[in-house]
Simulated scan of single mutants.
Amino acid sequence: MWNLWHGCHKKSEGCLHCYVFRRDGEFGKDSNEVHKTSSFGLPLRRDRSGAYKVSPGTLLWTCFTSDFFIAEADHWRAEAWQMMRQRMDLRFYIVTKRPERIAQSLPHDWAGGYENVTVACTMENQRRADERLPLFVGLPIRHKAIICEPLLERIDFGDWLGDWCEQVTVGGESGSEARACHFDWVLDIRSQCQVAGVPFFFKQT
C-alpha cells in the first residue's frame, strides 16, 4: 500500500460510509484536509544495503486514503509520476472517482500510459456508470479497470464493456452501516462481463 497523500472529499453516493472518514473520525481528524504523508517517497526508499525497501515485482495499491487525482494534490502529482517512472519494476494500481480530472493530470511523457500503471474508475450505481464511463473509456491509459464497490444497485453497462477494460471488480459495502448489496446484481454484472469477454472479480456482499 502506498498512501502518498491522505484526505478526500465525498463525491458521490458510494462515499456515504467511507472507511477513511469513519477511521479518521475515531481520532477526531478531519478527512477533508488533504496532506502529503510520511510515506510519500516510499517507492524510492532503500535499506542499509542499498536495495529498495519495496521489492521488484510488488503491486502497490496507490492512494487508497485519498483520490490520486484530487485537486489539492496537483502540486505533488508530478513527483509521484516521476517515482513511478523510476520504479518500472513495480506495478501501481490507482482507483479514482474523478475521471474528469485525469487528462489534465497526466505527465508530459505519458503517451498511451505507463506500462506499470493501472487506473481503475469506480461506479457504484447506474447514475455514476452513465456519468463516468463516457469520460473514462477514451482516456489514453494503457491499463484500465472498473470497480463497482460499494455496489448500490443493478448496473447496466450497455455496450460500453470491451477489451479496453482489463477487469471489473464488484463488492459490497463494509462496516456496521453497510447498505445491502444484492447477489443478483453481482451475477448480472458477471453475465455482462462474460458476454463482453471482460474478466470479473467478486469481493464481498
Rank of each mutant, 00 (worst) to 15 (best):
residue 14 G to M: 00
residue 126 Q to K: 14
residue 162 G to V: 07
residue 167 Q to Y: 09
residue 141 I to F: 13
residue 200 F to V: 04
residue 177 E to K: 15
residue 181 C to N: 02
residue 133 L to P: 06
residue 166 E to N: 07
residue 160 W to H: 12
residue 112 G to I: 13
residue 23 R to T: 14
residue 11 K to T: 11
residue 139 L to H: 01
residue 37 T to M: 03
residue 110 W to R: 04
residue 17 H to P: 06
residue 163 D to V: 02
residue 15 C to Y: 01
residue 136 F to R: 12
residue 90 L to S: 02
residue 180 A to H: 11
residue 115 E to L: 11
residue 45 R to H: 10
residue 197 G to P: 09
residue 13 E to L: 14
residue 176 S to Q: 10
residue 54 V to G: 02
residue 141 I to S: 08
residue 31 S to G: 15
residue 84 M to K: 09
residue 197 G to S: 09
residue 79 E to C: 03
residue 89 D to Y: 06
residue 184 D to C: 04
residue 24 D to T: 03
residue 79 E to N: 06
residue 46 R to F: 05
residue 8 C to F: 07
residue 128 R to L: 12
residue 79 E to M: 09
residue 62 T to G: 06
residue 11 K to F: 13
residue 61 W to G: 12
residue 172 G to E: 00
residue 170 V to E: 00
residue 196 A to M: 07
residue 82 Q to S: 10
residue 4 L to H: 11
residue 158 G to V: 02
residue 112 G to V: 12
residue 4 L to K: 05
residue 88 M to V: 10
residue 93 Y to L: 12
residue 14 G to E: 02
residue 30 D to T: 13
residue 126 Q to Y: 03
residue 197 G to L: 03
residue 146 I to T: 01
residue 128 R to K: 11
residue 51 A to M: 15
residue 134 P to N: 11
residue 136 F to H: 12
residue 119 V to T: 06
residue 146 I to S: 03
residue 83 M to K: 02
residue 192 Q to T: 14
residue 175 G to Q: 02
residue 81 W to G: 03
residue 86 Q to I: 04
residue 157 F to Q: 02
residue 16 L to A: 15
residue 27 F to A: 11
residue 171 G to S: 02
residue 185 W to F: 07
residue 75 H to Y: 14
residue 9 H to P: 01
residue 5 W to T: 00
residue 17 H to W: 09
residue 7 G to D: 03
residue 119 V to S: 13
residue 47 D to Y: 08
residue 126 Q to M: 05
residue 160 W to S: 15
residue 181 C to G: 04
residue 182 H to A: 10
residue 163 D to R: 13
residue 98 R to C: 07
residue 26 E to D: 02
residue 49 S to Q: 15
residue 42 L to E: 04
residue 75 H to N: 15
residue 57 G to M: 07
residue 90 L to M: 07
residue 163 D to L: 04
residue 37 T to W: 10
residue 189 I to E: 01
residue 36 K to P: 13
residue 14 G to R: 15
residue 89 D to T: 11
residue 177 E to A: 15
residue 205 T to V: 14
residue 148 C to G: 05
residue 153 E to P: 01
residue 154 R to K: 14
residue 20 V to R: 00
residue 106 L to H: 07
residue 140 P to E: 04
residue 150 P to E: 00
residue 198 V to Y: 01
residue 172 G to H: 00
residue 126 Q to A: 06
residue 27 F to V: 08
residue 12 S to E: 03
residue 92 F to L: 04
residue 153 E to Q: 12
residue 100 E to S: 11
residue 142 R to A: 14
residue 200 F to W: 05
residue 168 V to L: 01
residue 183 F to G: 04
residue 179 R to I: 10
residue 63 C to M: 12
residue 62 T to R: 08
residue 165 C to T: 10
residue 136 F to N: 08
residue 169 T to W: 00
residue 99 P to N: 09
residue 42 L to P: 02
residue 8 C to I: 03
residue 182 H to D: 13
residue 163 D to A: 08
residue 6 H to N: 10
residue 39 S to M: 10
residue 108 H to I: 06
residue 21 F to C: 08
residue 72 E to V: 01
residue 99 P to G: 04
residue 201 F to C: 13
residue 148 C to E: 04
residue 160 W to G: 00
residue 146 I to E: 09
residue 115 E to C: 08
residue 122 T to Q: 01
residue 175 G to W: 09
residue 163 D to F: 01
residue 67 D to E: 04
residue 89 D to V: 14
residue 72 E to R: 13
residue 24 D to Q: 13
residue 80 A to E: 03
residue 48 R to S: 11
residue 135 L to C: 07
residue 139 L to C: 06
residue 70 I to N: 07
residue 113 G to E: 11
residue 55 S to C: 08
residue 119 V to H: 09
